[in-house]
Amino acid sequence: MYRKAANVLLPILALAASFGPGLAIAETLNNSGSSGHCPTIAPGPVAIYDLDNILPSVVSQDVVAVDAIRNTLAQYPFAIDGKNYDRLDKVFTQNAVVNYSAPIGVLSGLPAIKTIADGLAMFNRTHHSYGTQYIKICSPSSAIAITYYTASHFLTPDLGPTFAPDTQALYAYGQYQDTLAKQNDGTWKVTYRNLVYQGPLIIDQNS
């Protein structure tokens, strides 16, 4: 069964690899957008090599807002890895748009975003972890965030601290480029997200 599931991933890997890690859209390189004085990082992803040129240095920040945004973004791994997709209500606005890049593409609206569950159903477990992060408060009600991530997707059912005899996993490395808005209740939510791959998808498929 696991071999069959892994074979399903091969055409997905080929398609995603054909797009490369940058997935740049030139029109995003605009230093004034709808998010106050922040660079525009939507609707298309910014190439990794261009981020350093367009992101301003953070000198002073609203630490309360930054902490609130960090907690909002932390809900995403909890929702995905816990298979509790209704928890995505805490991350995205109802009319949010997520560009997951190839092969998933663009999902518009929270109900569509939650259909990511269908694509992840083939995996027994997933593990999403965050790394380097940049958060910029643009105005009292708008912000952007760049968050590095590593995502592991496991086909094997073994959840214990043992070596799986037939390990099959899919690993992804990249970043989330988020545009956020402050809500009436004081929380922050993502209105637009770009997922950018920073390397090829990797299958660990031992026999």
Rank of each mutant, 00 (worst) to 15 (best):
P77T: 08
A79D: 09
A79H: 04
I80L: 14
D81K: 00
D81I: 01
G82H: 05
K83N: 07
N84M: 12
Y85D: 09
D86F: 09
D86Q: 15
R87A: 15
R87V: 11
L88P: 00
D89V: 03
K90W: 10
K90H: 14
K90P: 08
F92E: 02
F92N: 05
T93N: 03
Q94R: 04
Q94N: 09
N95Y: 07
N95Q: 12
A96L: 04
A96K: 00
V97F: 01
V98H: 06
V98L: 04
N99C: 09
Y100W: 13
A102L: 13
P103R: 11
I104Q: 10
I104M: 15
I104E: 12
G105N: 11
G105W: 10
V106W: 11
V106L: 06
V106Q: 07
V106F: 14
V106T: 14
L107F: 10
L107K: 14
S108Q: 15
S108L: 12
G109A: 09
G109P: 00
G109Y: 06
G109N: 05
L110M: 08
L110P: 03
P111Q: 10
P111Y: 09
P111E: 04
A112I: 06
A112G: 13
I113H: 01
K114I: 03
T115N: 14
T115R: 14
A117K: 11
A117G: 14
A117S: 15
D118V: 02
D118P: 01
D118Y: 07
G119N: 06
G119Y: 00
G119A: 01
L120A: 04
A121K: 07
A121N: 07
M122D: 02
M122T: 01
M122K: 00
F123H: 00
N124E: 15
N124P: 04
N124F: 05
T126Q: 02
T126I: 02
H127V: 01
H127S: 10
Y130R: 06
Y130E: 09
G131M: 09
G131T: 05
G131D: 07
T132L: 15
T132H: 14
T132Q: 15
T132C: 11
Q133N: 14
I135K: 07
K136C: 07
I137H: 11
C138A: 13
S139K: 11
P140V: 03
P140Q: 12
S141R: 12
S141W: 11
S142M: 07
S142L: 08
S142D: 15
S142E: 14
I144A: 05
I144N: 02
A145S: 09
A145E: 04
I146A: 05
T147P: 01
Y148K: 06
Y148I: 07
Y149W: 10
T150V: 12
T150L: 11
S152V: 05
S152L: 09
H153T: 01
P157S: 13
P157M: 08
D158W: 00
D158R: 00
D158Y: 00
L159C: 11
L159E: 15
G160R: 11
P161S: 08
T162D: 07
T162A: 10
F163L: 15
A164N: 01
A164Y: 01
A164L: 04
P165N: 04
P165W: 13
P165C: 06
D166W: 01
D166T: 10
T167R: 03
T167P: 00
Q168A: 13
Q168H: 12
A169D: 01
L170Q: 10
L170W: 10
Y171W: 13
A172T: 02
